[in-house]
């Protein structure tokens, strides 16, 4: 989603000339947001990002605690450090948001994404696609005589690399779930 690209030198949420005093190096952060599982909560989060001109690289959401009525939203976003801090503060003040954790700075975390990649081809290209899929530990979940659908789980960079390798071999379609992420270790962050 590059439509919301933040111009260098302008702050993310304003048309005005508000230069960031803390440097303008853009960083990518993975945020985990625990919310009440109620109508409109996703619209609130997305509306916040579009309304204030923040960037969304990836967003996933699903109910994770049925009894507690909670959903978990994982957002990968980019921005200068000041913008990232603003995003966290803005998310935190939404009424149905219980907790915001920045998995990029709060210690080690794992990020995973699932992708389905349809590759069409015959002969040597088909064999090569199969060989690369084995290297990446991708599973074949559907096949015809001229195509495969591979299922691949991994860090987003691994999925990117696999798709790039497959492209010359005949990628027809790609579906990606977006990133789910969780902190390493035996505790939930507070």
């Amino acid at each position: 989603m590059n439509a919301l690209h933040i111009k260098k030198g302008a702050s993310s949420h304003s048309a005005y000339d508000l230069r960031n005093p803390l440097g303008d190096q853009r960083e990518t952060h993975t945020l985990c947001v625990l919310v009440d599982n109620e109508a409109g909560v996703l619209a609130r989060v997305i509306g916040l990002f579009s309304g204030r001109g923040y960037n969304i690289e990836s967003l996933t959401v699903a109910e994770t605690d049925h009894l507690g009525h909670r959903s978990r939203i994982t957002i990968v976003t980019t921005g200068t450090p000041a913008v990232i801090e603003q995003i966290k503060a803005q998310l935190s003040r939404l009424v149905p948001v219980h907790q915001v954790n920045d998995l990029t700075v709060e210690g080690p975390a794992v990020s995973r994404e699932l992708a389905l990649i349809k590759v069409a081809g015959t002969g040597e290209r088909r064999v090569e696609a199969m060989r690369l899929a084995e290297v990446f530990r991708a599973k074949v979940v559907d096949t015809t005589l001229e195509s495969f659908v591979f299922e691949l789980t991994g860090a987003p960079t691994k999925v990117d690399a696999f798709i790039e390798l497959m492209r010359p071999l005949g990628v027809v379609e790609v579906a990606r779930t977006g990133v789910a992420a969780i902190a390493r270790g035996g505790f939930a962050p507070d």
Binding site: H13, S14, L18, R19, P21, L22, A82, Q86, A89, R93
Partner: peptide, 26 residues
């Protein structure tokens, strides 16, 4: 103009809304 705003001051900011802090001015 924010980059010329009070250039030599040490700034204390009390606000009930954390998103107001460091939004426009550090």
């Amino acid at each position: 103009r924010t980059d010329a705003f009070s250039p030599h001051s040490y700034r204390i900011h009390v606000d009930i809304d954390p998103s107001s802090i460091n939004k426009n001015i550090h």
